[in-house]
Nucleic acid binder design. Structure first.
Length: 638
DNA sequence: CAGAAACGGGG
DNA sequence: GTGTACGTTTCTG
């Protein structure tokens, strides 16, 4: 029996002897080359069934399906959980394999005695992280037996340890880690339009890193051997060798995070095709596996097991708001300098012509990876903190919209307070658009002209504050105050249950004192108890407050910086929480809550503008949570 | 005009 | 794979 402290980089599961085995990918803290794969075969998939009427009748029906051989499961039990704060008895069904869930789900749902299935669409590895309270990219304590090999692990890395867990892992602490990072970029000779991997060869592979490796691998460049400035060129004999050198470089440097720009869609698919042509193994997975493409809707993500691939393009689209997200544009935004640029359609000319043009192409190739790594160093700390708050794999978090980040944060919160999470609204939800769009924040078009003596007014986190102070949450929304209940009929989230809790009294007996009533729509939110979302949001804001206090107390500039990024991540998450109400397909979608927030928001800013006028400040431009005003002496009252 | 398809990033 | 982006612009019938 051994104990290992690792940093949890990634997680997945594989099937072994028809059973799911969780694999945790980590590296030994403080060491550059010790990778660990921990396997855990003790975790099993489950889902919840909400019976329509009598729970025992429902259990009978489900058992009946099993006897008929229609479905398979290993355990059926009654459990008490909360559903939007209403205590309910659910049936917890434990299945043999994660893939049995989608396989049998519809059959169970079709039973007359079944009202709903819940938590049937939570990927197995995410379930594992949530139920074991694990924090990715943080330190983790593992306890188990070292084993020599495992059937599906075929790695030639002699530093790799395989550990079979004998008890669940524990999160130890969240010390800041130095991750070994590498950016890379391909240049292709494409004389006929966009690169075509069947014909157009890779001519350069650029690499930069925070572990001392910075180079461009190419089949040309001998002519610059005496040129000091061009010492970064590594010349090889063929494209095949170029790809092999790239793979070796990543392996030898024991990289934790590999970074590209649009690499999900360009560099890795291209590399896959060219590597296949030359029969080169891209076996960069810690377990010896190769490059995998994971379907994400219509797009793909390029992934290696245990080696984190970040496509910085996806990160940048969330990180800042720009009209375009080319590497050049993003780099300029950060550093205020232009990158060396070679127009894509002319790269082959620079390559073919040689001389100074080729020299410039090499510089361009290096500049691309240097820029990519620089931007990564600026933006990944925030994404690391978000990963630790959201508690989902770093790979996933860098590819999630902010709304999804908030949603997965809430899924874990729900688990912590014994809530069964709502289902995703189904596609009939599109019909709900018929209700009309949610109106947004109040905007006063700016008065044209050059204004002097301007004063800026801003509400601090207007929407998060409103959600908490007005307790805006679907679990405390008074259903009678909503005029289009019928629209909820096809809506499988369980929201149609809330009246069981709220409408203890007929609506005419409702004591207005017990509710916050929003302007314009008059939706009512119970003052007590605190709603699930306001409560989760308050946790985020309290945590941010604690982090900011720690920041003030510390003298250590590095810790200060890291705490600052943490509080920024918490702020982002808080500001996103409003989004979970406004976007279709989100588990906590609530048109009423979204409308109530913006309605109260408009009321607040208008009120503030009016109040400011009494003091002589005339608003000349306003947007959502703030306005600019100029001082006019005559306006002042009293 | 509505619904479908393309687009982004990358060379 | 306990799965199937996304919001906007441009094209097409």
């Amino acid at each position: 029996m051994v104990k290992r402290n690792i940093v949890l980089l990634d997680i997945d599961y594989i099937t072994h002897d028809e059973e799911a085995v969780i694999r945790l990918f980590g590296k030994v803290k403080g060491e550059s080359s010790n990778d660990i794969i921990a396997i855990d075969d003790s975790f099993v998939p489950y889902l919840y069934v909400l019976p329509l009427g009598d729970i025992d009748a429902c259990i009978n029906d489900i058992n009946g399906l099993k006897e008929d051989g229609e479905i398979e499961f290993t355990k059926i039990e009654k459990v008490n959980k909360k559903d939007l704060q209403v205590p309910k008895e659910f049936i917890k069904l434990t299945l043999k394999h994660p893939q049995d869930v989608p396989k049998y789900r519809d059959i169970i749902w079709d039973l007359d005695s079944v009202k709903q299935l819940r938590e049937h669409d939570i990927p197995f590895y995410r379930r594992y992280l949530i139920d074991n309270a694990l924090v990715p990219m943080s330190e983790l304590e593992l306890e188990g037996d070292l084993i020599d090999s495992f059937e599906t692990i075929d790695s030639d890395d002699e530093n790799l340890e395989i550990l079979k867990l004998t008890c669940p892992p524990k999160t130890a602490n969240t010390d800041f880690q130095e991750f070994r990072m590498m950016s890379f970029d391909l240049e292709v000779r494409n004389p006929h339009g966009m690169p075509n991997p069947d014909e157009d060869e890779i001519i350069m592979i650029g690499i930069d890193s925070n572990v001392g490796i910075r180079k461009v691998i190419s089949t040309k460049g001998d002519e610059f051997a005496q040129d000091d400035e061009m010492g970064f060129i590594e010349v090889v004999d063929s494209e095949k060798e170029m790809i092999e050198r790239f793979v070796e470089t990543v392996k030898e440097a024991n990289i934790d995070i590999i970074i590209g720009y649009n690499s999900d869609n360009f560099d890795f698919p291209y590399l896959r095709d060219r590597a296949k042509k030359w029969e080169v193994d891209l076996d960069l997975g810690v377990d010896g596996s190769g490059l995998k493409f994971l379907r994400r809707g219509y797009a793909n993500s390029a992934a290696f097991r245990g080696l984190l691939h970040v496509d910085l393009y996806l990160v940048m689209r969330r990180y800042m708001s720009l009209d375009r997200y080319t590497l050049e544009r993003v780099y300029f935004e950060f550093f205020g300098e232009e990158k060396i640029d070679v127009p894509g359609e002319r790269i082959y000319e620079f390559w073919d012509n040689g001389g100074d043009e080729l020299k410039n192409l090499f510089k361009y190739s290096l500049d691309d990876v240097v820029a990519t790594l620089k931007i990564a160093m600026e933006t990944l700390p925030l994404n690391l903190e978000l990963t630790r708050i959201v508690c989902q794999p770093f790979f996933d978090v860098t590819r999630m919209s902010t709304g999804q980040q908030a949603e997965w944060f809430l899924v874990r919160k729900a688990y912590e307070v014994d809530e069964v999470v709502p289902n995703k609204p189904n596609m009939t939800m599109n019909n709900i658009r018929e209700r009309g769009n949610n109106s947004g924040g109040y905007v006063k078009e700016p008065e044209i002209g050059l204004h002097e003596n301007l004063v800026q007014f801003d509400f601090k986190s207007l929407y998060p504050t409103l959600i908490i102070s007005k307790n805006i949450s679907p679990d405390v929304l008074h259903k009678d105050s909503v005029s289009y209940n019928s629209k909820f009929e096809d809506f499988e989230t369980g929201y149609d249950e809330i009246d069981m809790y709220l409408d203890e009294n007929p609506s005419e007996d409702v004591d207005e004192e017990d509710y916050y009533v929003c302007p314009e729509h008059f939706f009512k939110f119970k003052k007590e108890p605190q709603g699930f979302i306001p409560s989760a949001l308050e946790d985020v804001l309290n945590e941010r407050f604690r982090v900011k206090n720690r920041m003030k107390q510390t003298e250590d500039p590095i810790l200060r910086k890291s705490l600052d990024v943490q509080q920024q991540a918490l702020k982002r998450l808080a500001n996103t929480m409003y989004g979970v109400y406004g976007f279709l397909r989100f588990r906590w979608y609530s048109f009423e809550c979204a409308q109530a927030i913006t309605a109260w928001g408009r009321q607040h800013i208008k009120k503030a503008m009016k109040e400011a006028e009494n003091y002589g400040f005339k608003a000349i431009y306003a947007d959502t949570d703030g306005f600019y005003a100029k001082y006019i002496e005559e306006l002042k009252k009293e």
